[in-house]
Design a protein around this nucleic acid. Structure first.
Length: 546
RNA sequence: GCGCCGGUAGCUCAGUGGAUAGAGCGUCGGCCUCCGGAGCCGAAGGUCGCAGGUUCGAAUCCUGUCCGGCGCGCCA
């Protein structure tokens, strides 16, 4: 539709209605008007052109409408003050799309982008010092949903999980296990959760012996063992959510394989690092950061940022066209230095994106509850799933913009889980299936040919028009890397289906009404398909019965 | 103090410069001879934090200001 309007604009220039001078025109923006009398699509192209062309917008709009060539029988365009062009789809064309949707089948809505990219999406990446908590829930759901949407438009996605395997946190975990085992007090920076006691209790004899006898620090030995146990548990929790990672990368591997060393060396050659106060600094301020950052401390130890730099190089070396980092907003202070490093290493800044998720504030009946692994005060992701189920949880986190802070009331979520809109959508899907089952029993067959001819009822037309939005909903979500529109769309479809169901009887003994059965059955099948495709993209079940 | 993100209906949140600002939940009032009532219809409920500005048009962009969250380490 956009290209049709853009072509009309070019044609208007050619035919001399619009002046031919100036630089590239902005892309035409197409809206979906809120009000039905404004048609199915609208564009403000004429009003945007008016100041440039110095011609009244209404005149330009008239000219564009004249040049606008819509495919045969698709629709009509008209001008509305102060210069909108409203495009109205023909009812017959709309009705004929039921057949097109059904022919596209499970591929419907998944319109491939022009240039598919190989995208690495890193998310969750919680250190394995304790089970995943509600604090990690948002990242897990949002990240996986983003991946699914990117895949839906044809990108190749790698889901990646990054974690520390040797630092102080892991050692603290080991020392905490040790303390639990020996009965000593848990160290200051230790972990106090019950899971630590469980780890201590299940410590195999050989690990315990190794910790007691090796020259190495017992905290390190036990930490290594405990964190791997915890990591396995995290993977199992994520499996239960339906989130499966392709690659697990450890911080240690970036050093073992020389990525950090090589990347820093490259920066050194480029003259981007220097020594001061015995430490090695990266001149990130030359690339937009507030100040320069330490890469190697004066004691020779690399900083966390050093790992980040090596990791950037490691990821790009694997051939990705684009990297996406999904971080909590508490990390936003480190974005600038990472972006600086990417630029200094010569990577296209447009090919790396850091998406920040706003904080989730957890409350229980109005008062805030902490989420601290160290203090052992947290609600685990597994507990959340037991309470409200993966579909409701996915819906909750999936339907909010990542920049929005969320108040998550655990008790309220439990109480309202039965009222969660996700069930309304699943119900609509189940109802479609039920109608289709009944039709088979009665030997009523869907007919897309009838659909094209007969579906003129307002409820039918509104429903089909909504089904036609799916491709653009997915494309927009993928392009914006914001996916919360998808659940909302689902809800719209379910709502319009309910209205259709009320107004238009599909299966009936009334001979007058029965002539619509085949056409409406085709529409029901198309709704079922769209809901199944959309729920599938959300990672939510599309049940045939409830 | 500086920086980033928010402030929209009772609650939780959509709203990518457009036309009369929306949804879910909650509240109130209706609807079960009929394909699934986990449903449908209707109503109430808003100075879009506040004040200026930009323009044909601002919840959206700019400036200031208030409130909240987060960040500002040779921590991660």
């Amino acid at each position: 539709m956009r290209t049709a309007v853009e072509r009309a604009r070019t044609d208007a220039v050619v035919s001399g209605v619009l002046p031919a001078d100036q630089a590239p025109l902005p892309p035409v923006s197409i809206q979906r008007p809120a009000r039905a009398e404004h048609g199915d699509y609208a564009t403000n192209a004429a009003m945007q052109l008016a100041p440039v062309a110095r011609i009244p917008p209404m005149r330009i709009a008239e000219a564009l409408v004249t040049e606008l060539q819509l495919p045969e029988a698709m629709g009509t365009a008209e001008v509305a003050p102060p210069g909108f062009i409203n495009i109205r789809l023909e009812a017959g064309w709309v009705a004929s799309q039921v057949g097109a949707i059904l022919r596209a089948g499970t591929g419907y809505g998944r319109v491939p982008v022009e240039h598919p990219r190989s995208v690495n999406v890193e998310f969750v990446s919680a250190n394995p010092t304790g089970p995943l908590t509600l604090g990690n829930a948002r990242g897990a759901f949002v990240g996986d949903l983003l991946c699914r949407v990117l895949e839906a438009v044809g990108h190749r996605v790698t889901r990646e999980y990054y974690f520390n395997d040797f630092n102080a946190q892991v050692r603290n975990l080991g020392l905490s296990v040790l303390a639990r085992r020996t009965g000593d007090p848990i160290p200051e920076d230790g972990y106090r959760g019950e899971y630590v006691a469980a780890l201590a209790a299940s410590l195999p004899d050989d690990v315990w012996a190794a910790a007691a006898t090796t020259s190495a620090d017992a905290g390190e030995v036990l930490g290594r063992w405990a964190s791997e146990r915890v990591r396995t548990g995290i993977e199992e929790s994520l499996d239960r959510l339906g989130v499966h990672f392709d690659v697990w990368t450890t911080e240690g591997s970036l050093y073992r394989d020389g990525w950090v060393e090589r990347a820093v060396e490259e920066l050194r050659k480029a003259g981007r690092v220097y020594e001061e106060d015995g430490a090695v600094w990266f001149r990130s301020s030359a690339f937009g950061d507030d100040k320069d950052r330490v890469v190697y401390r004066s004691n020779g130890q690399p900083t966390y940022f050093a790992s980040d730099i090596g990791y950037l190089a490691q990821k790009f070396s694997r051939g990705f066209d684009e990297l996406i980092y999904l971080w909590g907003e508490d990390h936003h202070g480190t974005v600038a230095r990472n972006r600086a490093a990417a630029r200094a290493l010569g990577f296209d800044p447009e090919s790396v994106h850091w998406l920040l998720m706003a904080w989730v504030r957890f409350v229980r009946d109005g008062t805030e509850v902490g989420m601290s692994k160290r203090a052992g005060e947290f609600v685990t992701l597994d507990e959340l799933l037991e309470e409200i189920g993966p579909d409701a949880a996915r819906w909750f986190f999936g339907s909010r913009a990542t920049t929005t802070g969320i108040d998550f009331d655990i008790e309220l979520a439990k109480r309202q889980s039965n009222e969660n809109p996700v069930y309304y959508v699943q119900y609509a899907h189940a109802r479609c299936c039920s109608i289709l089952r009944n039709a088979r029993e009665r030997s009523v067959e869907a007919s897309t040919a009838d659909a094209a001819v007969l579906l003129r009822h307002p409820a039918e037309q509104a429903l089909i028009r909504e089904l036609l939005r799916l491709p653009e909903v997915l494309s927009d979500a993928a392009a914006r890397r914001e996916t919360h529109e998808v659940p909302k769309y689902c809800l719209e479809v379910a709502g319009l289906f309910s209205q259709f169901y009320r107004d238009c009887r599909v299966l009936t003994d009334d001979p007058e009404e029965a002539r619509f059965s085949g056409a409406r059955l085709a529409l029901v099948d198309a709704v079922r398909l769209v809901l199944a495709n959309t729920l599938g993209t959300l990672g939510i079940a599309a049940p045939e019965t409830m």
